[in-house]
């Protein structure tokens, strides 16, 4: 997962070209792919959660994220104008075309890793959607207005579990610390800004602006139980340019296999 390097030269020129040609499509795919890939990961918990209530809660969060992804993919396809619908975008793109951050594709690990990832991502997505409600693009604003209420719950759910695990038993505390360590390398990428963002102006939210309010929320949760986000020993990035970790290929292989086995079929 250390391979991602956003500055590795001309090989990614195609993606950047598309981005310049259709910045709104590219931006919408970033939002959509974050939600879709995390939804797919959370779905893996169902029937394996620590208690029935969590099977329900994680399914609920996965469903919310899937709903956001579907609205955003549909909009990306419409804006692109090449006849791709939500399924064409979800099932027929390869991993190099996915625009999600590396954080959301990370394997679930144990419940502490998943909750660390949930806290970090939901807190980020909350600040993002909260501002995107005022987007100059009406569709994105409408998706954000609906989603921000869902994500407020995702954030609370994760915060509650991080507190419980952080201040539960000795074992849970060790695992929570390890969970935060495991996801730490993938945090900084969330707040990266680039030309696409400046090009889009009032349509997009600048991720860099989210870091401070995000940190205020996450730190308050962690400080409450005497935890902190460690300094990273390395950082990984590249998801926005389609430079993913190896795990995403397997996630997509599983997700896309059946759809691709029946070209042109409808379900």
């Amino acid at each position: 997962m250390r391979s991602g390097n956003a500055n590795s030269g001309t090989r990614w020129a195609d993606a950047e070209l598309t981005a310049r040609a259709q910045p709104l499509v590219e931006y919408t795919l970033r939002l959509a792919d974050d939600a879709l890939v995390l939804s797919q990961r959370l779905g893996e918990w169902i029937t394996r959660a620590p208690e029935l209530e969590e099977d329900v809660a994680l399914a609920n969060i996965a469903l919310d994220l899937l709903g956001q992804a579907r609205a955003l993919l549909t909009y990306a396809g419409q804006t692109e104008g090449a006849g791709r619908d939500e399924d064409a975008l979800a099932y027929l793109r390869d991993d190099r075309e996915f625009r999600n951050v590396l954080l959301v594709e990370q394997p679930n690990g144990d419940f502490a890793v998943t909750m660390a990832r949930q806290l970090v991502f939901a807190a980020y997505q909350y600040e993002l959607y909260d501002r995107l409600r005022a987007s100059a693009d009406q569709t994105l604003a409408a998706v954000a207005a609906k989603a921000v209420k869902e994500v407020a719950y995702h954030r609370e759910h994760a915060a509650l579990w991080v507190r419980r695990l952080g201040d539960g038993t000795d074992e849970s505390r060790l695992r929570m610390v390890a969970g935060l360590d495991a996801i730490r390398p993938f945090v900084d990428e969330l707040f990266d800004t680039d030309d696409l963002i400046s090009q889009l102006g009032a349509v997009a939210v600048d991720p860099a602006d989210l870091r401070e309010p995000w940190a205020a929320y996450v730190d308050a949760v962690l400080i409450d139980v005497g935890l902190e986000l460690p300094d990273p020993d390395h950082t990984a990035r590249g998801g926005r340019l389609g430079l993913h970790g190896e795990a995403l290929g397997y996630l997509l292989a599983e997700m896309q296999h059946l759809h691709r086995s029946h070209p042109g079929a409808s379900w």
């Binding site: 779905g43 029935l52 209530e53 899937l66 992804a69 939500e86 399924d87 296999h257 379900w267």
Partner: peptide, 25 residues
């Protein structure tokens, strides 16, 4: 769930399995 052939079917299936957990509760 992970392999549902369309996003719509995936959402329906997720919701269904969630309902079954609720029935258990």
């Amino acid at each position: 769930i992970s392999r549902a052939p369309s996003l719509r079917r995936k959402a329906i299936l997720l919701a269904k399995v969630q309902d079954e957990a609720g029935h258990g509760l």
